[in-house]
Design a protein around this nucleic acid. Sequence first.
RNA 1: GGCGGCGUGGCCGAGGGGCUUAGGCACAGGUCUGCAAAACCUGGUACACCGGUUCGAGUCCGGUCGCCGCCUCCA
Length: 493
Amino acid sequence: MASELHVYNSLTRKKEKFEPLHPPFVGMYVCGPTVYGDPHLGHARAAVTFDIVFRYLKHLGYKVRYVSNITDVGHLENDADEGEDKIAKKARLAQLEPMEIANYYTRRYNEAMRRMNVLPPSIQPLASGHIPEQIEMVEKILANGYAYISNGSVYFDLEKYAKQYNYGKLSGKRLEDLIAESRELQGTSEKRHPFDFALWKKADPRHIMRWKTKWSEGFPGWHLECSVMSTKYLGEQFDIHGGGLDLQFPHHESEIAQSVAANGKEPVKYWMHNNLVTINGQKMSKSLGNFITLYELFDGEQPEDGRTLPLNRTFNPQVVRFFILQAHYRSPLDFSQQALEAAEKGYKRLMNAVRLIDKLEPGDKSTVDFSKIIENTFDALNDDFNTPVVIAQLFEAVKLLNLIHDKKAQISASDLEKVKDFFHTVVFDILGLEFQETETSQIVNKLVDLILTLRLEAKKRKDYETADKIREELSKLGIRVKDTRDGFEWEFV
RNA sequence: GGCGGCGUGGCCGAGGGGCUUAGGCACAGGUCUGCAAAACCUGGUACACCGGUUCGAGUCCGGUCGCCGCCUCCA
């Protein structure tokens, strides 16, 4: 292969050659979902983005440990001081145990990801399962002098940290700007400095999720779990940390600060951030009410909260995956039904060719050359996982495959083997696309075949009235009949 | 207000100083066909605006306009 993998590092704002700290091993941590609601398109984009990274690194021969957490505790609802844990709030409203809520949405998340053919991470740790480790890290930061106790809560001492280290290097922010901005906000009594963030938060009496410590009965702060779990499973320094662009500040910035304050080391070599999903050019978000969950998209589930959905049909999870891959992960991706319908047609065209490839007959020699396409494809993958270019190259190959099928070109047996291998590797293993799940039983398949065989006989008798009627009635059932030279094909529309 | 990013043909979406076109969808023409659909083949249109650098600029620099993100939980 001519080129080598380069990844865009958010920390340096440059593409850098990828060199793991301890080859052939690669440690990768990606911020997972907070499980207090159904997974939406934004979750899908992050998961698919890093699924490609995971798959491609494995393809390159690295031994990858991929850790992606489930946040089931610790995120605050509103203002840090008044807030209530998101999961606890939902639990109180629904009269359910917090664990019940978290488990339910974790399963829903994982199921949706499975349907999009997202590989499960090597480790999927729970924040609630790592409370002792989080307490330990708070103690370490306290012992190192970068935190202080105030009224039962423990806060990170940002002012002190910023004197020695560059807080803001990841997000390009300057602490002075942040201070200037926040001065006007009301001073919060417990904190020395408005931008100090909670490492441990004392729980108010209503708060149901709580753990006993010497500081107070409470719960861990927002950013702590990722620092703790990445360190535990990947070490104090590891290769890749990923997540959505919206997590860059303050979440990831604070993770760096915590790790440096606790361990004295920069935790991450390559920071990667996927861009966000927009709907009509606006960020998809809960507060704007313009989000769309994956179950609404895949299965036509109706929103519980009376939102109106910007679509009137469902899409196969594979089509959604393909749609996501058609944009580069660092560009915004604008959602619309029209865009998804276009992706769906392209996806089908690609998959047709994948099916076709196994039926092709080799000729004596090759009159088409796939080598440039193959080279371009891997160059694109090596260039910061440029999946849109990969897909464009695949369509170039599709064109050639169709020419061969139409006998307008030919390919030698050995070249055909190469192309088959290339297609299977890229389409299935690296892009993780697969044939659409067909949910029909064998019986239905056989019945349709039977009906169409009878129709074929009618056609032979030139009884076109019957043939057309059958085709029309099947069409009403959502079955599209396609006549071929000497038979028929059909598919669900 | 501070910081960052983006404006590409009807739509989506890559590229990023000249060399070979991104690609998909839509559209038009064609092949196939009892008709149709599907499939396949072929084809056109582009780089927000104004200056500058350069032999040469969507591509670099400056400005203008517009859009978006972060600065609060968020993938």
